[in-house]
Amino acid sequence: MARAEFQLPPLATATDWVMLGAVFLCSLSFYGFRMLEDRAEGGLVTVVQVGDERVAVLPARKDTVLVVSGKLGEVRIVQQAGELWLEDAPCRLKICERMGHIHRSGEVIVCAPNKVMVRRERVGGEREGTLDAISR
């Protein structure tokens, strides 16, 4: 390419703005939908999964400490006053511990090296009342 032919691309084109705007709206609408879902009827439960296997399902309002065996070792999951967090995990980077506390439906904490996932889910009101911890 001759030197005269080279032109530095612009910072942003109209296509860029359309694409970025559409992505922004998509993300906002998802979070709006999740907020609506959070206000919906039904009980909130905590689902603990190791790999593709559910090892525990328990009501979100129940204060408890769960110790779950993952691929690398034991993960300590704490649920207190409606909040849920991973207190101790054997992974090296501790990203899961730094993901902080979750409390709403659809929120998730993942410990990828250990293959442990903890998430909040909304279920029918009657089901939530009958659930207790189911552990491996």
Binding site: P9, L11, A12, T13, D16, M19
Partner: peptide, 12 residues
Amino acid sequence: AIPVLGFLGVSF
């Protein structure tokens, strides 16, 4: 895509 996209689009 550079004539259609700019730095922001490519980086995104």
